[in-house]
Amino acid sequence: MNDARLLTRILADPSRIGEVRDWTALLCAARAESLGGTLAFRLEGSPVPPKVASILLDARRDAAQARTQALWEAEMARRALADTGIPVVLLKGTAYAAAGLPPALGRSIGDLDILVPRTALPRVEEALLGAGWEWVKENAYDDHYYRTWMHELPPLIHRERDRMIDVHHTILPLTARRTPDAQAMIDDSVALGDGLRILAPEDMVLHAVAHLFADGDLAGGLRNLWDIDRLLRSFTETPAFWSRLDARARRHDLLAPLQRALRLAARFYRTPVEQALAGRSAGDALYERRLLARDGWGRATRRGTRLGFYVRSHWLRMPPMMLAKHLLEKARR
């Protein structure tokens, strides 16, 4: 069996570990998909060979330490921005960890991602620069590109802690075809105890969906889809969740991506989804093929499928002339 496929089956149902013939290949594929820590928590307490148990224990400890560091970055950003009164919404991994949501278990967390109102950007920038963050060295073109077309400030890095922060003012690039309503997301965000905020449940799912499809060439897709699975499972008991998710997806112009994500999540992780909302499509097979393009040596496979998705991902984000200009600038350097 394809190792990426086996990985998804075991994540969905850890009792299937009897199907593992090559643990090294499974662990390698999981690491390559940034799911090593997640797998380690899913298999906690499962009867695995002693060597595997020891590798999984290391991965759980490592994830716990990464979580501490990520939450600390959020806390330091909170302190830096507290006096501004600007609402700061945590996104992605840090949000899941801060809110104690299930995708956080074992999840690797890279940069700190926050969402703030677009009008507050200059004040956020000033407060962060005053609290020890600095621009990652960028040339003028990149800076212009970020500020004009992307959905975030150019990345900042903290000079002492060496950790990056991405300050978003919308959840998709301004060049993308779809235009989610970021202000509505901020308005409906939920306060955590310490003053930081997270997205409301429906918006959190929709942000994960936007991230899965629009923010790249489906790289890391199995992990993003796992986030969606875990979120849906924890929200599905909330009354009227599915109808609110439906309405919210239309509001943000993300209905079709949401539907595809629901179908793929159900397919890979047996996520309980509302069939009426998920709908049907013949095009899912290509996505499935792309998401499983990983072998037991951790290598990216199916080059043709990948290239198609790369071109497509740029197309989604940028109109053609802009894409040409961007590729030209990239080539020149």
Partner: peptide, 16 residues
């Protein structure tokens, strides 16, 4: 070596 490796190393062409 143990049956399960702690780490995988790949030596591969930088481009195909």
């Amino acid at each position: 070596a143990d049956e399960v490796a702690d780490f995988t190393v790949r030596l591969e062409p930088a481009t195909p």
